[in-house]
Design a protein around this nucleic acid. Structure first.
Length: 340
DNA sequence: CGAATTCA
DNA sequence: TGAATTCGG
């Protein structure tokens, strides 16, 4: 998923204080997918309510959003719209991979290999329309803004950041840099511990910041060249890229070639120039309003506890934290206003 | 993943 | 207490 240019990009660790008071546009699909794939039982089964409906994404979204708000970070979630036609191949590839993983999950389960089962269950994760609807509903009840992108969410998030309506975009993927976000935050979580799949090794995962301007300066290229580089290496729109060309070689190529795509267009069955154009000028919208409101407590209790069997005690505790955070955030905004 | 609980 | 483990839905 996403572009494979990570190793080329300079980045710096972010302390939470650096994000205090800042608005961030979060790639909703990216977040939901991660919750869905990681919040699971030992055999790989996701969390579900008594009617068998998946709730892993709601749990993750609820608690992480509260954590972010408590840290003074104002999240706005950006949802994908209609994917571009040329993403079809990648989407089909993902669907195929999921089906294969599903089979392997069942096999591992049949022979009682829980570790393998979970691994394949995670790969079989599918973010469907129902999960998206649930997520939007929860955010609305929480008073957290969400934005409907006309096309790619990463493109919309980049647009909002480049307009200065949010400070940064947030995703694990690097695509929003190609779409022109001035800042990309990765690993946007508060409790930063991740267990490596192999053994019982825990690694601290801190938020990191990638600044587009610094990327271009470091690589000595323009954004247009960065997009060409990414296309050579491979994006969601041309999976795999050009055979035999990795990030290092691609960087050299875009530097010395005036029109790097020309040579490789012949050996590619997709329109590389259309992909480039899409990254440079993606569909976006101005139809959004970023407002962080007090949560609808009654609505949340009904939705999470009554409908989806969440623990009332836990949810009420979360709500208290959220209310406090919203108030504190308003105070922060007022303080910085009077200090001007 | 993140909250709650257990462990040393 | 802080780290490790288990539970959550």
């Amino acid at each position: 998923m996403g572009v494979q240019i990570g190793e080329l990009l300079p980045r710096k660790e972010l302390e939470l204080e650096n994000l205090n008071g800042r608005k961030v546009a979060i790639d909703a699909f990216n977040a939901i997918y991660q919750f869905l794939s990681t919040i699971r039982q030992r055999d790989g089964t996701p969390l579900m309510d008594s009617k068998g409906r998946i709730t892993s994404h709601l749990s993750g979204l609820f608690y992480r959003t509260i954590n972010l708000m408590e840290a003074g970070i104002k999240p706005a979630y950006v949802f994908d719209g209609k994917p571009p036609e040329f993403k079809k191949k990648e989407l089909e590839k993902r669907a195929e991979a999921r089906e294969e993983a599903q089979e392997k999950w069942e096999e591992a389960l049949a022979r009682g290999d829980l570790e393998e089962a979970k691994k394949y269950a995670q790969r079989a994760s599918k973010v469907n329309e129902m999960l998206i609807e649930d997520a939007k509903k929860l955010l609305e009840l929480m008073g957290i803004p969400w934005v409907q992108a006309p096309s790619e969410g990463e493109a919309q998030a980049a647009y909002m950041a480049s307009k200065g309506h949010v400070w940064a975009s947030a995703s694990q993927d690097y695509d929003s840099l190609l779409f022109g976000t001035p800042r990309l935050v990765r690993n946007l979580t508060i409790t930063g511990k991740r267990k490596l799949p192999g053994k019982d090794i825990y690694v601290e995962v801190k938020p990191e910041l990638i600044v587009l301007e610094e990327v271009l300066k470091e690589l000595k290229i323009t954004r247009e060249k960065l997009v060409e580089l990414a296309i050579l290496v491979g994006t969601d729109y041309n999976p795999g890229g050009i055979k035999g060309i990795g990030p290092k070689k691609a960087l050299e190529i875009v530097k010395y070639s005036k029109d790097p795509l020309a040579k490789y267009q012949k050996m590619s069955d997709v329109d590389l120039y259309a992909i480039k154009e899409f990254f440079l000028n993606p569909p976006t919208t101005d139809e959004y309003k970023l407002e962080w409101k007090m949560p609808d407590e009654e609505g949340i209790l009904k939705f999470l506890c009554d409908e989806h069997d969440f623990s009332e005690e836990r949810v009420k505790n979360g709500l208290e934290r959220l209310k406090k955070a919203v108030k504190a955030g308003r105070q922060f905004t007022l303080d910085s206003w009077f200090k001007k």
